[in-house]
């Protein structure tokens, strides 16, 4: 810091410099103390990241050996936190498969079982709550989302005069969320599933703004999953526990469907309203629906996103 001397009457040199030195040290020290103290909340930081995680490469650049190391790291971290040894795998897409989901609006009764089966299968945070599926209660005769009720809680469903429309990631062929991601942390796989590399996402939430279906969810804080509800069958792009500050969303239960199983939301549906399969297989249920059911809707078709999620009716 420079000395403060009125040019008209300079005081004796030594005295001022000593006094000003003390004064300057005092203000510098107090300023530094305040700066250090302002960082006090960082004391509570635990398990935010690790050297391995910080330096980890993008999913598509990992060699099989590196991927194995990453999977081991994830298993280790899960075991440390939950004292359960998970089975973490990286399932690859199958050749000749394009997943499609069909949902029968005539059958859905709005029981929200799919919502909670999904939460259980995919290790979503229970508090704050992260849910991939939103069930809309809509008055008969309208698809106007603005008239939808998200928080219905009657004694029993279905209610007269309404139909129910579960909405989750539509796995668009032309996904706006993928286009806007500045770091390619989300992309479309060959089997049609749009996935997120939770270890690459920077949490800018641009994809959340871009999604026309309110399908993406952000980890606003550390997710919390009760130990007894942890699903230990995990996959890298799927249901492994996420960290604070990253996006997640429905991935058609990649850890189930890439092993040939049906997704969890389908398995729990009491009304059989949900149908899933390989659209490229003419014998599949979804191929039958797309061929034989006359009325089906792709939500917000006018946006050109071309969802792989079809709503249909029994007529």
């Amino acid at each position: 810091m420079s000395d403060q001397k009125p040019p008209s009457a300079p005081p004796p040199f030594g005295e001022v410099s000593r006094r000003s030195f003390l004064r300057n040290s005092a203000i510098l020290a107090s300023g530094a103390a305040a700066l250090a103290a302002s960082l006090a909340p960082l004391r509570e930081l635990s398990n935010y990241t690790s050297v391995e995680l910080f330096l980890q490469k993008h999913y598509k650049e990992l060699t099989p050996a590196e991927m194995q190391k990453v999977l081991d790291r994830i298993a280790r971290e899960v075991e440390q936190q939950y004292h359960i040894r998970p089975r973490v795998r990286d399932y690859k897409p199958m050749d000749g498969v394009e997943f499609v989901y069909c949902l029968n609006l005539t059958r859905c009764i709005g029981c929200r079982k799919c919502v909670h089966a999904c939460v259980a299968e995919n290790n979503q945070s229970r508090n704050p709550e992260i849910q991939y599926i939103r069930v809309l209660k809509m008055p008969h005769g309208s698809l106007d989302m603005e008239r939808a009720d998200h928080n219905y809680a009657p004694a029993s469903v279905p209610e007269k005069g309404f139909f129910y429309m579960p909405v989750q990631c539509q796995q668009c062929k032309n996904p706006p969320c993928v286009k806007v991601c500045p770091v390619k942390a989300t992309w479309q796989e060959p089997d049609g599933i749009t996935v997120i590399d939770y270890d690459w996402c920077i949490g800018c939430r641009y994809c959340e703004a871009a999604c026309p279906y309110f399908a993406r969810r952000f980890n606003w804080t550390k997710p919390s999953i009760p130990k007894e509800r942890l699903n230990p069958e995990m996959s890298y792009l799927g249901n492994r526990p996420r960290r604070q500050g990253v996006m997640e969303k429905c991935h058609f239960c990649i850890q189930r469907t890439r092993q040939g199983k049906y997704p969890a939301c389908l398995e729990v549906c009491p009304a059989g309203a949900r149908k899933f399969g390989n659209a490229l297989d003419p014998e599949s249920e979804v191929a039958y629906i797309l061929k034989n059911k006359r009325v089906f809707i792709q939500l917000k078709e006018e946006l050109g996103t071309s969802p792989r999620f079809f709503y249909y009716f029994d007529v």
Partner: peptide, 8 residues
């Protein structure tokens, strides 16, 4: 008909 699961 049945009781719906809790909402969001």
């Amino acid at each position: 008909s049945r009781q719906p699961a809790p909402g969001p």
